[in-house]
Computed example of a mutant assay.
Amino acid sequence: MYDERIPYQDAMLCIKVNQHMKIREPLLRLWHYHRELEWLYIQEGSLQIRVQEQVYTLGPGGVLLVGSSQPHATWTVVSEKVIYLTLHFDLNAYSDPSVMLYYRTLYEIDGPLSRFNEQFHTVPQLREDIGRAISGIYHEMHCRRRGSEVAIGLYVKQLLLSVLRSESEEEGENRELPPASNLRQVFDYVERHLSDKIEMDTISKMTNMSYHYFSKYFKKTIGLSFVQYVNIQRIKKAERLLLTEQAKITEIAEKVGITNMTHFYQLFKRYNRCSPKEYALRLTTNADKLSPSSAPTS
């Protein structure tokens, strides 16, 4: 089993989507995993995929979701010829406040996202919507028309919505949703003050909760502590700055509110498994190699 590194076709969107064709091709069945979510959409033929202990057989129109860091392998080509799309994207790149409200589900606190594959298989309309979104992302990524970034972002949100709506149907919409009014102002405040010192005491007063109650409330609702959430947002902003600004790493660390460089490097490596310099070099190199002019059109 190996940790696969996904070469993004767009450094800002943190996404890769490709079309594959296999004709009577023997497969090595190599187990692998990656931090990105993976979606498959079968356009022609049949394919078997194994996700941990579960084997899925996908025919034309079939879709599959593999969760972050979940071991999986392409098991066998069932038909003589199969054509399918694979989509990988880093969920962190699309985690705005509306997404963070459903952190427990989308970040797999309550269980792997692959548990929704049965729902995708049994609900034709849901399967069609997912296939249409994946196809739309593929088309936009390889045509690169004006506004493609916006269109791709909308399609990704459609995929995430499919997951959330599947959960609602599966549980009879009995699950209590987190109180959005309290959390939205917290998310907005953190986003505006990432370069400053953020005190949980200030946040708890803002939400009319005691310090200890807010701490427990936030972790129970979101699935991670408030400090962890702030650190994730700081690193996400640092990722964007590394790609969009010509600045020293020390300056970027200060802009995201981390003055201790040792702590900054530790956090960055924890969430990206590489240093800030390696991250920027890898993404900009991949972006150059996979520029619109060199993108496949099939």
Rank of each mutant, 00 (worst) to 15 (best):
R24T: 05
W31T: 08
I198R: 00
E254P: 04
F187T: 04
M141T: 12
L242C: 07
I23K: 10
Y138C: 08
K216P: 05
S114E: 15
D110K: 09
H139E: 10
H263I: 09
H139R: 12
G147D: 09
F226Q: 00
T74C: 08
N286M: 14
S275M: 09
A253E: 08
G61F: 00
K255N: 06
I222A: 01
Y103C: 11
G61P: 07
L126C: 06
E44N: 13
Y229Q: 04
F226P: 02
E169N: 12
K16E: 08
T285Q: 14
I252Y: 01
V63D: 02
R132K: 02
I152D: 07
D129M: 10
I130K: 04
T57E: 15
A253S: 10
R165N: 14
K255M: 04
K219D: 10
Q233I: 06
R184G: 07
T57H: 12
E278S: 13
A247S: 06
N231C: 00
K269P: 09
S291L: 09
I49V: 15
E167Q: 11
R35V: 04
V55E: 15
A238S: 11
L159D: 10
L101F: 15
M206G: 05
A247T: 00
D96Y: 08
V55G: 08
E118C: 10
T221V: 07
I109L: 05
I198M: 04
I130F: 03
Y271V: 11
E254A: 15
A253I: 04
T86N: 08
R29F: 00
T284H: 12
D10N: 11
R282L: 15
V230F: 08
I23Y: 03
E199W: 00
I15N: 05
A11S: 10
T202H: 09
K236R: 13
H20P: 02
L241W: 02
A247C: 04
I198L: 07
N92M: 13
L65G: 01
D188H: 15
E169L: 13
Y94L: 03
P124D: 00
E199V: 04
L183S: 08
H34T: 05
S98Q: 14
P178E: 13
V63W: 02
L241Y: 03
W31C: 00
L91A: 12
C14I: 06
Y102L: 08
S135M: 08
E170S: 13
E199F: 03
S294G: 06
R50F: 03
Y107A: 00
K289R: 13
L283N: 06
G45L: 01
F89M: 02
D188N: 10
D110S: 13
T221G: 07
S114R: 11
I198W: 04
E44S: 11
D188K: 13
A11P: 06
L58I: 00
T284G: 09
P124H: 03
A253P: 07
S98R: 15
S204L: 05
T259E: 07
Q233R: 12
T221Q: 14
K289T: 13
K248A: 15
P292S: 10
L40S: 11
L91N: 05
L281G: 07
R127W: 02
T221I: 06
L161M: 11
G61K: 00
S195K: 08
H72C: 06
A180S: 15
